[in-house]
């Protein structure tokens, strides 16, 4: 099958590539751009491990073809820390609040939380749980993930978060 030329911005960097139309965006990111932060967990759009930020939306990159992302602006977990290596408040929050264990869901979870906080900078616990319901975690039971997001929300809002990880 003829390949298609696509041009897109990934983590602030312009990328041009040839892709087969059927190449899934997750495979394009992982195999062609070597961005292995987004993971493949379920392949049926349930687990959210492949979540990235695309044009200001949280997207499960296993359910989109790379050709559909032509022209898009994408951020993956690899694009979250500052250029000087300073961790994003969410990355810091996940560590401080013990919001991860095996780490497999973490990149997708953080990317989803990032968009959630853009849309709702100070969510309630209820809103966080509802907002991350497209991301499955098998290790943490979510309780500390909620805290990690609250930590980040507080930090981004300039308020220190006091509660410790359980």
């Amino acid at each position: 099958m003829a390949k298609s030329q696509i041009t897109l911005t990934v983590n602030g960097k312009k990328e041009e590539a040839l892709v087969e139309p059927r190449t899934l965006l997750i495979h394009f990111l992982r195999e062609q751009l070597n961005l292995t932060g987004p993971h493949i967990g379920c392949e049926t759009t349930h687990c959210g491990a492949c979540t990235i930020d695309l044009n200001g939306m949280s997207v499960k990159s296993c359910t989109m073809f790379a050709v559909q992302a032509n022209g898009a602006d994408i951020v993956t977990i690899e694009g979250m820390a500052a250029a000087d290596g300073t961790l994003h408040a969410l990355q810091e929050g996940f560590r401080e609040m013990h919001g991860l264990q095996c780490g497999f869901c973490t990149p997708g979870m953080i990317m989803r939380a990032h968009r959630l906080l853009q849309e709702n900078p100070s969510p309630t616990e209820e809103e966080i749980r509802f907002g991350i319901a497209g991301n499955l975690c098998r290790c943490t039971g979510y309780q500390n993930i909620v805290k990690a997001i609250q930590y980040a929300a507080a930090k981004l809002g300039g308020v220190p978060y006091r509660e410790a990880a359980e």
Partner: peptide, 20 residues
């Protein structure tokens, strides 16, 4: 309650899983 060493790489998408 020591913070986890592993998290530094995992929170940055730098874990090293088999499919990577």
């Amino acid at each position: 309650k020591r913070k986890r060493v592993e998290d530094v790489r995992f929170t940055q998408g730098k874990g090293n899983y088999v499919d990577d």
